Amino acid sequence: MTLKFQNEIGYFISTEEYFNSISKTGEGQFTINPDLFKIFSPYSMRRYFMKKKITGVDTNIGSSSFISDIKDKEVSEIKAKYLKIAKYLKDQGLLKKGEKIPNTVALNCAEKVYSKSNVNIVKNAIGSNIGPATIRTLQDSKFFFPENCIFYSKDISEINVQLLDKKFDLILLDPPWWNKYIRRKRKKSPDAYNMMYNTDLKSIPIEKMLTETGIVVVWCTNSSQHLHDLTQNIFPKWGVKFVAKWYWVKITTLGDPICEFSEPPGKQPFEQIIFGYRNPSKCLPDSGKLLISVPSAIHSSKPPLVEVIQNLLPENPQCLEIFARYLLPNWTSYGNEVLKFQNECLYLSQ
């Protein structure tokens, strides 16, 4: 089960268990490589810069690359909620025990995934798997497809044409927010992604693709400028109203935050999840909830929200993820790297 714990202030989920739960195919059981989740120690700025200087490898596991300008009071409230949930998780034995050893295994595994998945990225393709989960070969590489999934490996500029007249109850976005750090990194590494200005994000025709009672969920950085533009400029253009904000708190397998809760403008061990509704109803998410999980060592990889938002959706909802880099069962996924992390290099066969 992906959802390991929930109460009035938050959730604890296992991304690793979720992907394992959807990966049984006619060819056998495939499991996501557990080494990707062997995050035993908090992220250290000193270790990060030392290793990057020596090896050129980005060891930034899960912690936001954006300098945070979130307010002191908000950080304190998030930390207090996290401590309450973390204590319960430890008391109930839901966290692992052990030493805070280096995250070398996870980092090395991620580097291997990057090198292999970058070799054969499927571009300019449309496809689907209508039926049980399966493994298929594309361009001399094998890819895992969960059940009943649809994908568009297309540039965002084509979305209006590709999804013309399609409507969705939920649209999830993980935008490549503009960031000077990523801009510098892109000059040195093929693993960095293209970024978008907020005006470009606003131009995506979400308003044409959302049902009359639809929900928009957006992963947002801790930048006040991004949050302001999203809620005050982008959401109104998309025809939705801001109704709630959650926080994804990233922890080690032992339950420590992936980096310290810092005084602003320091980096934080959390990112924001923003909810917008076209026609707010009685079924609204409570603002301020925490989503706690161990992040994958793959940079910027987000946990699946399937189980924690299903009560907000109608029966058999039509769901779309934009800027997707992995596929979900019963979802439509859109992005120019939509199959990147469906590559066999992430999975182990049994």
Score class of each variant (00 low, 15 high):
residue 287 S to L: 08
residue 277 Y to V: 08
residue 298 I to K: 11
residue 82 Y to V: 02
residue 52 K to I: 00
residue 322 I to H: 05
residue 314 P to S: 09
residue 20 N to F: 03
residue 187 K to V: 06
residue 205 P to N: 00
residue 205 P to D: 00
residue 344 E to N: 09
residue 92 Q to T: 14
residue 236 P to I: 09
residue 81 K to H: 05
residue 305 L to D: 08
residue 224 S to K: 12
residue 124 N to M: 07
residue 217 V to I: 15
residue 209 M to T: 01
residue 186 R to L: 05
residue 23 S to L: 01
residue 81 K to T: 03
residue 121 I to T: 10
residue 103 N to A: 12
residue 245 K to H: 11
residue 15 T to D: 07
residue 16 E to M: 07
residue 303 P to M: 13
residue 223 S to P: 02
residue 300 S to Y: 15
residue 4 K to W: 01
residue 224 S to Y: 02
residue 29 Q to L: 10
residue 171 I to G: 05
residue 245 K to V: 14
residue 231 T to M: 09
residue 297 A to M: 13
residue 115 S to L: 14
residue 202 K to S: 04
residue 195 M to R: 01
residue 256 D to L: 10
residue 295 P to K: 11
residue 235 F to W: 06
residue 332 T to Y: 06
residue 92 Q to N: 15
residue 189 S to K: 03
residue 325 R to G: 04
residue 216 V to Y: 02
residue 331 W to Q: 00
residue 218 V to N: 00
residue 90 K to L: 13
residue 43 Y to T: 02
residue 188 K to W: 00
residue 144 F to A: 05
residue 67 I to S: 05
residue 270 F to I: 06
residue 46 R to G: 00
residue 3 L to G: 01
residue 38 K to M: 09
residue 83 L to D: 14
residue 217 V to E: 00
residue 85 I to N: 03
residue 235 F to V: 08
residue 30 F to W: 12
residue 283 C to I: 13
residue 206 I to Q: 02
residue 322 I to S: 06
residue 93 G to E: 11
residue 78 I to F: 06
residue 46 R to W: 06
residue 74 E to L: 05
residue 79 K to Q: 14
residue 113 V to H: 04
residue 99 E to I: 14
residue 344 E to T: 05
residue 273 I to G: 02
residue 150 I to R: 12
residue 76 S to H: 03
residue 231 T to V: 13
residue 244 A to N: 10
residue 127 G to V: 12
residue 132 P to A: 10
residue 30 F to K: 03
residue 141 S to A: 15
residue 327 L to N: 04
residue 164 L to P: 00
residue 202 K to C: 01
residue 41 S to N: 04
residue 121 I to Y: 04
residue 146 P to M: 11
residue 338 V to H: 01
